[in-house]
């Protein structure tokens, strides 16, 4: 089990109001799985994804990912853990506009002890995997939406993480490009053994996953329980 959540609750306080977004949630995801998290807006999908990716901490419960109790790690240790274990793909790509595709992909490798030449080589390999080796010198503004998302996927892959978390990775793309991106994620799951957790609103996108989980009002809908 690469992801294991037990009795996880998450509450946010906004002003005087406290909102519980996740309620005593249990979840298990096996290594090599490709899970699509679906559900209406406000159901807690992104919050759950953030907890799995170590971007946020639960208010209650236990989060174990890649064998680490990440809810117990300090801020700095959690940052190191993220760098080693998780690759992130966002809806709006979140690339650095002033860096080339190559520069963006190399960014996570700055946290490693790799030499500049090795960083360059690894980034080129990641760009080749996503089919953008010939666009390495282009800035994000010179790439299409689909190409930018491929760069973001290359950035997520470059440090060879065990887990990829994707938040609406095709939400900003047309159908054809979205299918290409989802096909790429499928390839990464099937051929490279990457475990993928993907949040999506799109039922067609969810079909690319091996498994679909539905959320509503902060809990997993029965029938989809792991």
């Amino acid at each position: 089990m690469i992801v294991s959540l037990k009795k996880v609750a998450k509450r946010y306080t906004r002003g005087k109001e406290t909102v519980e977004v996740l309620h005593s949630l249990d979840l298990g995801i096996e290594q090599g799985d490709f899970v699509a998290l679906m559900g209406p807006s406000g159901s807690g999908k992104t919050t759950l994804l953030n907890l799995i990716g170590g971007l946020d901490r639960p208010s209650e419960g236990e989060v174990v990912v890649a064998g680490e109790h990440i809810d117990r790690l300090s801020g700095a240790a959690l940052a190191r853990w993220r760098a080693r274990n998780v690759g992130f793909v966002f809806q709006f790509y979140n690339l650095m506009p002033m860096l080339s595709a190559q520069g963006n992909v190399e960014l996570p490798l700055l946290l490693t002890k790799l030499s500049a030449a090795q960083r360059r080589k690894n980034a080129q390999t990641a760009l080749t995997v996503v089919g953008l080796a010939d666009r390495a010198r282009h800035k994000p503004s010179e790439l299409s939406g689909g190409q930018q998302q491929r760069v973001a996927i290359a950035r997520a892959l470059v440090a060879d993480p065990t887990l990829l978390v994707c938040d609406e990775p095709t939400g900003d793309l047309d159908r054809k490009t979205a299918d290409e991106i989802l096909g790429l994620l499928q390839t990464l799951n099937r051929d490279y053994g990457k475990t993928i957790v993907m949040v999506t609103h799109d039922p067609k996108a969810a079909e690319f996953a091996k498994r679909q989980l539905h959320m509503d009002k902060g809990t997993l809908v029965p029938g989809n329980m792991p």
Partner: peptide, 16 residues
Amino acid sequence: IPELAVLKTLGFSDGK
């Protein structure tokens, strides 16, 4: 702000 958040997401610590 979003770019700095991405850096932190990628594993850059608060100190870095």
